[in-house]
Amino acid sequence: MESNFGARNAILGAIRSALGETQSAERIAAEYAALPRGYKRHGTLPEQERLRLFQHRLEEYGAGVRRVASDAIGDGIRDEIAGRLAARGCKRLVIPYGLPKGWLPAGFDFEPYGGNGETGVSLGPTALNRMDGVLTGCTVAIAETGSIVLQSGEQQGARALTLAPDYHLCVVFAEQVVETVPESFARLDATSCLPTTFVSGPSATADIEMTRIKGVHGPRFLDVLLVG
């Protein structure tokens, strides 16, 4: 690799001479630890209120939300998925290779994506674009901002999966929903090197006269099944 050491050293040298002396790593760590963090780092809402807030925020973005009672896990999720897909007119869906088989209702085509050759296929973006939709789980969700967070992996797949198809159905469990943004980071920290995507509603723009319009390049339709 032809890294340009001349420029690197010149820039670092210029920074050092502008800043004065370089501190030791220990000093820097101590200073970092003492930075003020007076903001809210833990939620205070009881679970049902937290879930209602999450639902409300998603609906404000124009996402569809269906609640599924937690005691109906299993058939309940599968039936709801079937209902949503039928309502959206979706037949062929791409799924991450590790999605629980128990979620998948009969009567639809599910194409597993990623993993090794045995568990799934790798589709090019054009093929993904031709799919009716994508079905995934999530890593964590944030009530206050109506966000679902996806990390590359077995249940959420590569990032292209949730991008090229025009419809995204996401299954979120109650225990995955935190109230605040800082709580989501506490959960994501351990896997912070995985490609991570925060999704807050369908893709949108406000570039023309500041009018928020749903659906530009990302999925134009987003539904969330909230379990619990």
Binding site: R57, Y61, G114, S122, I142, E144, T145, G146, S147, S152, A158, R159, A160, S192, C193, L194, P195, T196, T197, F198, V199, S200, G201, P202, S203, A204, A206, G218
Partner: peptide, 21 residues
Amino acid sequence: ATGERMNPYNSIWTGVQQGDG
């Protein structure tokens, strides 16, 4: 920036991820 609680997409990635991107 836009007066939204969260903008639709934030992407965070590290280097190169095999099979993704």
